[in-house]
Measured scan of single mutants.
Amino acid sequence: SKDAAQYVYDEAQKGVTQVTVNGVTFKFDNWQKLLKYAQKLLN
């Protein structure tokens, strides 16, 4: 959902490398990768 994507995006902006959405945890090597993933979700 857009809300989940926005949440992931906001978390990535904080510099975190993992985020949990609806009980599913996504882990990334660095926050830039998390940010890229979030941007994909938002598009």
Rank of each mutant, 00 (worst) to 15 (best):
residue 1 S to N: 11
residue 26 F to T: 04
residue 32 Q to C: 15
residue 6 Q to E: 12
residue 6 Q to K: 06
residue 14 K to D: 12
residue 38 A to I: 13
residue 3 D to R: 05
residue 21 V to A: 11
residue 13 Q to N: 11
residue 29 D to V: 14
residue 19 V to T: 03
residue 34 L to S: 00
residue 39 Q to S: 03
residue 33 K to V: 06
residue 33 K to F: 09
residue 28 F to V: 08
residue 13 Q to M: 10
residue 21 V to H: 08
residue 7 Y to K: 08
residue 9 Y to N: 08
residue 36 K to N: 05
residue 38 A to E: 00
residue 40 K to Y: 06
residue 12 A to V: 10
residue 2 K to L: 10
residue 16 V to G: 05
residue 34 L to W: 03
residue 3 D to C: 15
residue 10 D to L: 13
residue 29 D to E: 09
residue 34 L to H: 00
residue 41 L to M: 02
residue 6 Q to W: 12
residue 14 K to A: 11
residue 43 N to Q: 08
residue 11 E to R: 03
residue 23 G to S: 03
residue 41 L to S: 00
residue 7 Y to R: 12
residue 41 L to V: 02
residue 12 A to W: 08
residue 38 A to T: 02
residue 38 A to Q: 00
residue 13 Q to Y: 08
residue 41 L to D: 00
residue 22 N to E: 09
residue 17 T to L: 11
residue 41 L to Q: 01
residue 39 Q to T: 04
residue 33 K to P: 01
residue 42 L to I: 03
residue 30 N to W: 15
residue 36 K to Q: 06
residue 17 T to M: 07
residue 31 W to H: 01
residue 17 T to F: 13
residue 24 V to D: 01
residue 37 Y to V: 03
residue 41 L to T: 00
residue 35 L to E: 00
residue 37 Y to A: 01
residue 39 Q to K: 04
residue 18 Q to R: 04
residue 13 Q to D: 09
residue 38 A to F: 11
residue 11 E to C: 15
residue 35 L to M: 02
residue 37 Y to N: 01
residue 12 A to I: 11
residue 8 V to H: 03
residue 12 A to Q: 05
residue 43 N to D: 04
residue 39 Q to N: 03
residue 8 V to T: 07
residue 14 K to F: 11
residue 24 V to S: 03
residue 23 G to T: 11
residue 27 K to L: 15
residue 43 N to G: 03
residue 24 V to R: 06
residue 15 G to F: 12
residue 8 V to R: 04
residue 43 N to V: 03
residue 9 Y to R: 05
residue 40 K to Q: 04
residue 27 K to A: 15
residue 11 E to K: 12
residue 20 T to W: 14
residue 21 V to F: 09
residue 38 A to S: 01
residue 27 K to P: 09
residue 12 A to R: 05
residue 13 Q to T: 10
residue 27 K to I: 15
residue 10 D to W: 14
residue 14 K to C: 15
residue 38 A to W: 09
residue 43 N to L: 08
residue 24 V to K: 04
residue 23 G to F: 15
residue 10 D to M: 13
residue 39 Q to R: 09
residue 21 V to I: 12
residue 21 V to S: 05
residue 2 K to A: 09
residue 1 S to P: 13
residue 35 L to F: 07
residue 8 V to I: 10
residue 16 V to E: 04
residue 6 Q to R: 08
residue 10 D to Y: 11
residue 25 T to M: 10
residue 18 Q to V: 08
residue 14 K to E: 10
residue 32 Q to K: 07
residue 29 D to T: 11
residue 40 K to A: 05
residue 8 V to P: 14
residue 27 K to R: 13
residue 13 Q to W: 13
residue 42 L to K: 01
residue 12 A to E: 06
residue 18 Q to I: 11
residue 22 N to T: 13
residue 4 A to F: 09
residue 35 L to P: 00
residue 39 Q to G: 02
residue 12 A to G: 05
residue 35 L to G: 00
residue 32 Q to A: 08
residue 34 L to P: 00
residue 28 F to N: 01
residue 19 V to Y: 02
residue 24 V to A: 05
residue 28 F to K: 02
residue 16 V to Q: 04
residue 18 Q to N: 06
residue 18 Q to P: 05
residue 23 G to R: 10
residue 3 D to N: 09
residue 5 A to H: 03
residue 10 D to G: 10
residue 15 G to H: 10
residue 7 Y to S: 14
residue 39 Q to E: 02
residue 26 F to W: 08
residue 4 A to R: 04
residue 25 T to P: 08
residue 25 T to G: 04
residue 29 D to Q: 12
residue 33 K to D: 06
residue 39 Q to W: 14
residue 41 L to W: 04
residue 30 N to A: 10
residue 2 K to R: 11
residue 6 Q to G: 08
residue 39 Q to V: 05
residue 31 W to V: 02
residue 25 T to A: 06
residue 22 N to F: 15
residue 6 Q to L: 10
residue 6 Q to F: 04
residue 13 Q to E: 09
residue 3 D to K: 02
residue 36 K to F: 06
residue 34 L to G: 00
residue 21 V to W: 03
residue 18 Q to K: 08
residue 37 Y to L: 14
residue 27 K to G: 09
residue 28 F to S: 02
residue 34 L to E: 00
residue 21 V to D: 09
residue 33 K to W: 11
residue 16 V to F: 09
residue 15 G to E: 07
residue 5 A to D: 08
residue 4 A to M: 04
residue 37 Y to K: 02
residue 1 S to V: 11
residue 5 A to W: 13
residue 18 Q to S: 05
residue 24 V to F: 11
residue 5 A to I: 05
residue 2 K to Y: 04
residue 19 V to G: 07
residue 2 K to Q: 11
residue 14 K to T: 12
residue 15 G to T: 14
residue 27 K to N: 13
residue 36 K to M: 05
residue 36 K to I: 07
residue 2 K to N: 09
residue 6 Q to H: 08
residue 20 T to Q: 08
residue 11 E to W: 15
residue 42 L to C: 14
residue 12 A to D: 09
residue 30 N to D: 08
residue 14 K to R: 09
residue 42 L to P: 00
